[in-house]
C-alpha cells in the first residue's frame, strides 16, 4: 500500500515535471514560459520531498520559486514579445537531444537495481556541516547574493543615453 502511494506520487510528479519542462521550452509567450518554470520547480520540489530531502524542497520553493522565478516573471512583462527565429541547427538538435537522453539512461544502467528507501535527516547534522566543512561556500553564496542585489539596483538606476 505504502509503495503504491509512493509510485502514484512519483508518476504524477514525474509527468508534471516533463509536461512543464516541455511547456517552458515550447510556449510562444514568455510569460507562460516563466509560469511553467515555476510549476516545474514545484513538481521538482515534490520529487525532492519524495527522496527524503524535505528541507531542500522547502528551500527550493521559498528561494527558487518564491524569488528567482517570480523575478523572471515580473521582468519578462517589461519586454515586448519578440517572434522566435528558428535557427538552422533545428534538425541537428532533434537528433542530438534523444541521443543525450538515451546516453544518460545507458550510463546510469548500473543503478537499475538500487532499491528505494525513505531517508530521515537530522537537521543538526546539516547545520554542523554548514558551520564546519562548508562555511566558506556559505560565505561566498551570501556575498554573491549581496553583490547581485547591488548590481540589480545599479543597473535599474543606470541612465541610458539617447542617440541623437
Amino acid at each position: 500500500m505504502n509503495e503504491l502511494i509512493l509510485l502514484a506520487s512519483f508518476s504524477i510528479l514525474g509527468i508534471a515535471l516533463v509536461v512543464f519542462a516541455a511547456s517552458v521550452v515550447g510556449q510562444r509567450s514568455l510569460v507562460y514560459s516563466a509560469l511553467s518554470l515555476g510549476l516545474l520547480g514545484m513538481a521538482n520540489a515534490g520529487l525532492f520531498a519524495l527522496l527524503g530531502y524535505a528541507f531542500v524542497a522547502v528551500f527550493h520553493l521559498a528561494v527558487y520559486i518564491g524569488a528567482a522565478v517570480i523575478f523572471i516573471l515580473f521582468s519578462v512583462t517589461m519586454f515586448r514579445e519578440i517572434p522566435d527565429v528558428e535557427v538552422s541547427t533545428k534538425i541537428l538538435t532533434v537528433i542530438t537531444v534523444p541521443l543525450i537522453a538515451l546516453i544518460l539512461i545507458y550510463i546510469y544502467l548500473p543503478y537499475l537495481n538500487a532499491t528505494f528507501k525513505s531517508q530521515y535527516f537530522i537537521y543538526k547534522e546539516i547545520s554542523l556541516l554548514f558551520v564546519t566543512r562548508y562555511w566558506f561556500p556559505l560565505v561566498i553564496t551570501g556575498l554573491a547574493l549581496v553583490t547581485t542585489l547591488i548590481e540589480g539596483i545599479t543597473l535599474a538606476r543606470m541612465e541610458v543615453e539617447e542617440d541623437v
Binding site: V18, T93, Y108
Partner: peptide, 19 residues
C-alpha cells in the same frame, strides 16, 4: 520502485532543456 526511475526522469528533463 527504485532510484533508476528518478535518473530516467532527470535525463528526459535534461534533454528537453538542451533542446
Amino acid at each position: 520502485f527504485n532510484y533508476y526511475a528518478f535518473l530516467i526522469l532527470a535525463s528526459f528533463v535534461f534533454a528537453i532543456g538542451v533542446y
